[in-house]
Design a protein around this nucleic acid. Structure first.
Lengths: 214, 214
DNA sequence: CCTTGTGAAGTTCTTCACAGCT
DNA sequence: AGCTGTGAAGAACTTCACAAGG
C-alpha cells in the first residue's frame, strides 16, 4: 500500500536505461520537435514504449504534435539526476593506469557533463611520473586519503584481473558508491555497492547474444 | 503454436546475461562443486533465479547436492555458443586507433576465449606505423577488403564521435554483424545489425541509476 | 537435513487500442 | 489527419513453495 506511493514516482529500470540513451540521442538532433514514430525509426524501440517512458517524466508538454527536444532533454536530466551543467557533477576516479586506464585519462571521452574525473591512481610511481595528464595522479597508497578528502563517489577499475577484487574491497571500504569494472574478474562486494561489469570480453559476449545490455 | 516450439529452446535475455557472467565467475572458483545458495552469496541474485537460469541449460547433472563447476561452465558455453577453445572464435576488429582503440590492442584485455582480434584500422597511416602490435593494422581504405577476406563479424568502434555514424554505416555495409560502440554517438543502423553502446559516460550514468545494464 | 528442478502465483514490463487534443 | 497519454490486456520475468533425490 505505501510501497505503491513510493513506486508512483519511481521509473522502471528498463525505462531508465532507454531514457539515458534517449538523452544522448537528443543531443544529436537538429530539429526542434520530435515525435514518437520518429524516435522509433532512430532507436528501434516501439513507439508505445517510447511514449510510456516519456510519460514517466510527467512532462505533459508533449502537446499532441510531438515533443520539444530541448524540454524533453532537460526533463530527463532532472528526473534522472543526470548532470545539469555544473550541478550534479559526480566525482569519479580511475584506479589502475595501464593502457586502458591511461586512455580514460583523455577527458574528451567523457561527455562534457555528469561525471568529473577527479583523480587517477597507480601503484607504480614511474607511470605516474611519465603520464602527463590534466587530472591529478596519485600513488595507490593515497587512495583512502584522496577519496575521502575529495569525496569521490565512483571508481573506474582498470587494474589487472588479479588485483581487481582486493582493490574493489578497498574502494568499497573507503566509501565509494559504485564501480565500473573493466576487469575480467567478477567482484563480490556488499550489496550497497553498485557494480557494472564492462570488460570487453563480457560486452562482446552480450553483443553476440543480442541482449540489449542497456 | 510453432513460435512456442521455438521458444522452448530459447533462453530469456535476462537469463542469458546472468549466465554469461556466471560463466566468468566459475573461472574464479577453486572448489569442484557449487550450490545455488553459494552462488547467491557471490552474485547477489536470488537462488531461485539462479536455479531457473541453470535449468534452461537442461543439464540435469546438478544432482541434489550442488552443481559440478566444470560441467556447468561447459554447458553454459555450449548452450550460448561462447567459445570453446579453438572452436567458435568470432573474429573482430578495432576501428579507430586513438588512445582507447590503441589500448584495446592489448590482447590480454580479452579473456583468452570467444573473440579473436583479427585487425585494427585507422585513417592515419602514421599511427599505424608507430603502433607496434601483434595484431595486423591497416589503413581505413582497406576496411572493406580486410573485413570480407578475413570474414570479420564484429567491430569495436573507437573513432571520434563525429565519425561514428558514417563508419558504422560502412561497417554494416561490409557485412559486420555487431558493433561495440565506445563513442558517445547513438548509432542509427538497420535492425539486423546488433549494437551495444558502451561509452564511459553512458556506463557511468547507468551505474549511477543502479541499473544492471547486463 | 540440504540440495535441485519446476508448476503456479506474483510481479514487472510491453503493447494494444482508443479517448482527447491540436 | 496525426499526435500524446493511458487504462487494460498481454507477455515476460521472478519468486514462492514444495515434491523428489541423495
Amino acid at each position: 500500500m505505501f510501497q505503491n506511493i513510493q513506486k508512483m514516482n519511481d521509473i522502471p529500470s528498463p525505462s531508465k536505461k532507454r531514457l539515458i540513451q534517449l538523452s544522448q540521442l537528443l543531443n544529436q538532433l537538429t530539429s526542434k520537435k520530435i515525435t514518437s514514430p520518429e524516435l522509433q525509426k532512430l532507436t528501434g524501440w516501439g513507439e508505445a514504449t517510447i511514449r510510456r517512458d516519456i510519460s514517466h517524466l510527467k512532462l505533459h508538454n508533449g502537446a499532441s504534435n510531438g515533443y520539444d527536444v530541448a524540454l524533453l532533454k532537460q526533463a530527463i536530466e532532472q528526473k534522472l539526476e543526470l548532470a545539469v551543467k555544473g550541478q550534479n557533477e559526480y566525482k569519479c576516479c580511475i584506479v589502475g593506469l595501464g593502457n586502458l586506464g591511461g586512455a580514460f585519462l583523455e577527458t574528451s571521452l567523457f561527455g562534457s557533463e555528469s561525471f568529473k574525473l577527479a583523480a587517477g591512481f597507480d601503484t607504480n610511481q614511474n607511470k605516474i611520473d611519465m603520464l602527463r595528464s590534466k587530472i591529478p595522479l596519485y600513488p595507490t597508497t593515497d587512495l583512502e586519503k584522496v577519496i575521502r578528502q575529495q569525496q569521490i563517489e565512483y571508481a573506474i577499475l582498470t587494474v589487472s584481473d588479479e588485483k581487481a577484487q582486493i582493490m574493489a574491497e578497498r574502494l568499497s571500504k573507503y566509501g565509494i558508491k559504485g564501480i565500473l569494472n573493466y576487469t575480467n574478474t567478477v567482484l563480490t562486494l556488499p550489496p550497497e555497492i553498485k557494480v557494472l561489469n564492462a570488460s570487453p570480453t563480457l560486452l562482446l559476449q552480450n553483443l553476440y547474444q543480442g541482449v540489449s545490455l542497456l
